[in-house]
């Protein structure tokens, strides 16, 4: 260990600060996430049912975190019989 390393070792507080900021940003998002997803799900169902009758069980909203980007995945199952009727009406 040289003299430079000795001084470097001293300043550990900025490392602690940065680690905490990153960690807590994720943990706070995770705490907020269930509510956000529930809200999105309700509003998506409201919009979709204006045109196609779908139940709560047909709508699935999830998020995936990959590195720097989060993806929001929305899956809506529309029964084939219903889809047919919509197309006919249109």
């Amino acid at each position: 260990m040289n003299v430079f390393n000795m001084f470097q070792k001293r300043s550990s507080a900025p490392v602690a600060r940065e680690r905490l900021q990153i960690l807590l940003a994720h943990e706070r998002a995770a705490r907020g996430a269930p509510d956000l997803l529930a809200l999105l799900r309700e509003e998506i169902i409201a919009v979709v049912t204006r045109h196609v009758p779908v139940g709560h069980e047909n709508v699935n909203v999830t998020t995936h975190r990959n590195g720097d980007v989060s993806t929001l995945e929305i899956n809506i199952d529309i029964p084939n019989s219903v889809k047919a009727r919509v197309i006919v009406n249109a």
């Binding site: 001293r10 300043s11 507080a13 600060r17 905490l20 900021q21 807590l24």
Partner: peptide, 16 residues
């Protein structure tokens, strides 16, 4: 110790 960068400062904790 906070001054020497060995411990989180008051400002660090308050900001976090």
């Amino acid at each position: 110790r906070a001054r020497r960068g060995e411990m989180l400062t008051t400002e660090d904790v308050l900001e976090i």
